[in-house]
């Protein structure tokens, strides 16, 4: 890391730490303790820290949220970080302990700290709640993903369309798709983590039904493999 980058990283770290000042010390240390190492990895990979990391206050919020910690008393954190960032970006900014930059009037007990430093038991409960919330969000995502999959299916003239499936590195047994409507076949493939290429062929019988597939049902393939299905179009 160049000295400019080191300086940048140090200021950034100080501001992130300031935005986590309300956390339990052990929790804060777990969260930001390895951050310096992480930032130097980013620099070594040629990442422009300013562009990649953005505003330290926003970074800290995102970090806390992703780590499953309370994102803190929003207003107070905003104030704290704005002050810390201002101090850090000024010329010859003092690099004292970040807590010095905190112009907090009320004592810390005024903040809803119990939420941010739960007992081990309570932490499990929070994790469970987090998992439930995450699951709900996943539901919404799946709706979007499926919407996207359907949306990508342009009309019948298209011969080959590849729909990338969710990453699934494990091996998968190819399901039997013949006789199913195309949309259903796509759903089944997406569910088991396989990609699909659709070809059309004119045939008698109902339009949009899977006539054949390759590889055939029962074959074991790697997750994400492409299954070619031939769908009937109007004769």
């Amino acid at each position: 890391m160049s000295s400019t980058q080191t300086q940048q990283a140090r200021q950034f770290l100080a501001a992130v730490e300031a935005a986590c000042a309300d956390l339990d010390p052990a929790e804060r240390s777990r969260l930001v303790g390895g951050l310096e190492e992480h930032l130097s990895e980013l620099s070594a990979d040629g990442v422009d820290l300013t562009a990649e990391l953005g505003d330290p206050a926003a970074y800290a919020r995102e970090l806390r949220s992703a780590a499953g910690l309370a994102t803190g008393p929003t207003v107070a954190v905003h104030t704290v970080v704005a002050a810390a960032a201002g101090a850090a970006t000024g010329p010859g900014a003092p690099t004292g302990p970040p807590t010095r930059a905190l112009p907090l009037g009320p004592p810390t007990t005024a903040m809803p700290l119990p939420v941010t430093q739960p007992a081990p038991g309570a932490r499990k409960v929070l994790l469970v709640i987090g998992a439930v919330l995450a699951f709900i969000a996943v539901l919404v995502t799946a709706a979007l993903v499926l919407g996207g999959v359907f949306f990508m299916r342009s009309s019948d003239s298209g011969v080959v369309q590849v729909t990338p499936a969710a990453p699934a590195p494990m091996s998968v047994v190819v399901p039997d798709l013949t006789g199913q409507p195309e949309a259903q076949a796509r759903q089944v493939l997406a569910e088991v983590g396989l990609s699909v290429v659709v070809e059309t062929a004119s045939a008698a019988g109902p339009v949009g039904e899977v006539l054949s597939q390759d590889p055939s049902a029962g074959t074991s393939v790697e997750g994400g493999s492409v299954i070619r299905i031939t769908v009937s179009s109007a004769p």
């Binding site: 777990r30 969260l31 390895g34 951050l35 992480h38 980013l42 990649e52 990391l53 970074y59 800290a60 919020r61 995102e62 970090l63 806390r64 949220s65 992703a66 780590a67």
Partner: peptide
């Protein structure tokens, strides 16, 4: 970056 790093933690 913060989302991935936080999730890893």
């Amino acid at each position: 970056d913060a989302s991935v790093y936080g999730t890893l933690q």
